[in-house]
Design a protein around this nucleic acid. Structure first.
Lengths: 293, 293
DNA sequence: TCCATTCTCTGACTTTAGTCAGATATCTCT
DNA sequence: AGAGATATCTGACTAAAGTCAGAGAATGGA
């Protein structure tokens, strides 16, 4: 990472956040404190419960409560008990609140137009493309890869999606009971680890490592959500697991995969895995790979 | 401008400003109120006068004064009379303030690194390029084209640069006394207008229109700063003058140019100007153009 | 010289944002 | 039914940010 790149990023931070920040100030205030405006915006068209708002906006519960009282007094929101759990409160916009929300929506559009309007068509296209690229990569930079229990809610969700995808993609379909199993306890300490990758807090991929015979580990359950592909998330998970394997004293990793999973094979090859003779009898596998750490 | 583009811009505004804003919060605070931190940052290595700080940061004079008192009490800045104008105060950093400033610099670098570090080299390159593009175009979108007296300080500066450039670029050099003149009063109401384009407040180009014989106007002194080329500034100035000409009831515009100014000729052609027979005896001209409005 | 203007400063405010320690109601688990 | 956890609310704070009216010094131009 050279210093020219760092300077460019700093420059971008200054110029772009300042300009857009200033525009947001002037467009989105509508004579209301920012906290209240954000709250209306987040409660949005469908409403939300107070707990969700608190965690999304990162506010103190006392503070949030007061903001809600204020919006209630202005006749913009209704707060009533959540059916099901009587501790939770549900926030919804009154018709007047909906109107406010619509006004914010309109102003956000205007703000975006005020950026695009002075440009020529070709410049607009380039700006929009470049913004999409920056946004995409900023999100990628914030990918959070974390060790997690294979039984956790998000891990379960990933595995379900993974199996579902295999069923779709394998020519012969996929029946977990016919495949070599990887039980939860094999993917959790001390026998192994399970990692989940998250994009903006939403699970976007998973992967597991079984420590195996203490010299050779096995990679299992490598999966990336289709909505999050092409961002290097699988590579990042693989590299994370390799680092964990090295720390655990393993000297090699191996894995098997199905011939329909072309992108996975390309990843393994580019990360230095070599195809080897079958080392197990997994019925759904067509390729076996290994790498020395 | 389609709504998909507007949505992309809005999305960018949300995701990117939020993420970078949050990072700046966590990196740049150093246990100090944001206002004070910004002030140290702006006063910077070379110091600044209070008026410049006030307009740059957009602060109330009373508020700014209080911030300065606070930083002074912390031993971070010195405030003394400006030599020349005794009403102005000059702010400069003490050695302790310089150290604070350096710390902010270091943290800004760290912040930038924290964005780049999780990415692969190729992704980093793409992010930096896309950021440069966004920054460039956001600046372009904020180009400010304004009618101005040809005698104003910035107009003078533009014209000096313009003549200097002609001297460099014309094969025969350029001597203003041998060229057909355009006097200041011909480029100001009621005889004409002079416009200056600014990028972030700095003059980046100029252009003049002489109303001429009330049906046909003349474009003169079209110039863009070399540091600001390739951003459509000249085109924007030209379009601005055409709009003014139309409003003034003119039905045609014409201009002459030198053969070495290839990019200007390309601009005129692409904006619908056709080459015509010489309509004056400007000794430095090789091409004459005209356009019906 | 004098008068309007410019620039900075001070005092007296308000609003916004945020924290913290309980109080109260409700839920979950045993 | 009771213990402990969870979710929200209230009261009592503080800090930061910002506004407004005017005072006082310096300047620029008539």
């Amino acid at each position: 990472m050279d210093s020219r790149q760092i300077q460019q990023v700093r420059h971008f931070n200054r110029v772009v956040t300042q300009r857009i920040g200033a525009l947001e100030e002037s467009y989105l205030r509508r004579g209301r404190p920012l906290g209240e405006a954000r709250l209306i915006f987040e409660a949005g068209a469908h409403g939300a419960d107070v707990r969700a708002l608190r965690s999304k906006l990162g506010l103190d519960s006392g503070y949030l409560s007061r903001l809600l009282r204020s919006l209630e007094a202005q006749g913009l929101i209704l707060v009533d008990k959540q059916i099901g759990d009587g501790r939770l409160r549900r926030v919804s916009l009154t018709p007047k609140g909906q109107a406010e929300f619509a006004a914010y929506e309109g102003l956000s559009d205007e703000l975006a137009q005020s950026i695009l309007a002075p440009l020529e068509a070709a410049q607009r296209d380039r700006l929009v493309d470049a913004m999409a690229e920056v946004e995409r990569l900023i999100r990628v930079a914030a990918v959070d890869v974390r060790i997690e229990a294979p039984g956790s809610e998000d891990a379960r969700w990933c595995l379900d999606e993974y199996f579902h995808e295999l069923t779709e993609r394998f020519e012969s379909g996929f029946d977990p009971t016919k495949s070599n199993p990887a039980r939860d306890d094999e993917m959790a300490p001390p026998a192994g680890v399970f990692i989940v990758a998250r994009l903006d807090g939403c699970p976007a991929g998973c992967c597991a490592l079984k420590f195996g015979d203490k010299t050779t580990g096995e990679i299992k359950r490598m999966w990336t959500a289709s909505s999050a592909r092409g961002r290097g998330i699988a590579r990042k998970m693989l590299q994370t697991l390799e680092a964990i394997a090295r720390d655990a004293g393993l000297t090699a990793l191996r894995l098997e995969t199905n011939r329909t999973l072309k992108e996975a094979q390309a990843l393994y090859r580019s990360e230095g895995y070599r195809e080897v003779a079958p080392f197990n009898d997994e019925p759904y596998a067509h390729h076996w790979f290994a790498k020395d750490l």
